[in-house]
Computed example of a mutant assay.
Amino acid sequence: MISIFIIFAVFILFYINKMTNSLCLQKEIPEERQPKVFRTINILITILLISSFVEILYA
């Protein structure tokens, strides 16, 4: 079950980063701000995935 969740999490992170890149291009976010945007979104998605895993694990 852990391996399935890890594969799912990697897929989610990849897809979210792809959408974040599209957002940066569409909104014309400057190059110097893009790493901060990516870092913030990746941290928030990682927290969401960890909390989902803990909820599934103890439910």
Rank of each mutant, 00 (worst) to 15 (best):
Met1Ser: 13
Ile2Gly: 15
Ile2Ala: 09
Ser3Tyr: 09
Ser3Pro: 04
Ser3Asn: 13
Ser3Arg: 11
Ile4Leu: 13
Ile6Glu: 14
Ile6Asp: 08
Ala9His: 02
Val10Gly: 02
Val10Ser: 11
Phe11Thr: 14
Phe11Pro: 00
Ile12Asn: 00
Ile12Trp: 00
Leu13Thr: 03
Phe14Asn: 09
Phe14Ala: 14
Phe14Thr: 11
Phe14Met: 05
Phe14Gly: 12
Tyr15Ile: 06
Tyr15Met: 06
Ile16Asn: 03
Ile16Gly: 02
Ile16Thr: 15
Asn17Ala: 10
Lys18Thr: 07
Met19Glu: 15
Thr20Phe: 04
Thr20Cys: 15
Asn21Lys: 15
Ser22Glu: 15
Ser22Met: 12
Leu23Lys: 12
Leu23Cys: 13
Cys24Glu: 07
Leu25Lys: 15
Leu25Arg: 13
Gln26Ala: 14
Gln26Glu: 13
Gln26Ser: 15
Lys27Glu: 15
Lys27Leu: 13
Glu28Cys: 15
Ile29Ala: 08
Glu31Lys: 14
Glu31Phe: 10
Glu31Arg: 14
Glu31Asp: 10
Glu32Ser: 07
Glu32Asp: 09
Arg33Phe: 13
Arg33Asp: 11
Arg33Ala: 12
Arg33Met: 12
Gln34Arg: 15
Gln34Trp: 02
Gln34Asp: 05
Gln34Tyr: 04
Gln34Gly: 05
Pro35Ile: 08
Lys36Glu: 07
Lys36Ser: 06
Val37Phe: 12
Val37Trp: 01
Phe38Asn: 00
Phe38Trp: 03
Arg39Gly: 01
Arg39His: 07
Thr40Asn: 13
Ile41Cys: 00
Ile41Trp: 00
Ile41His: 00
Ile41Asn: 00
Asn42Trp: 01
Asn42Ala: 07
Ile43Cys: 05
Thr46Met: 13
Thr46Lys: 05
Ile47Asn: 03
Ile47Lys: 03
Ile47Trp: 05
Ile47Cys: 10
Leu48Lys: 01
Ile50Ala: 10
Ser51Pro: 02
Ser51Ile: 14
Ser52Lys: 01
Ser52Leu: 14
Phe53Arg: 03
Phe53Asp: 04
Phe53Pro: 01
Val54Cys: 12
Glu55Ser: 08
Ile56Cys: 04
Ile56Trp: 04
Tyr58Ala: 05
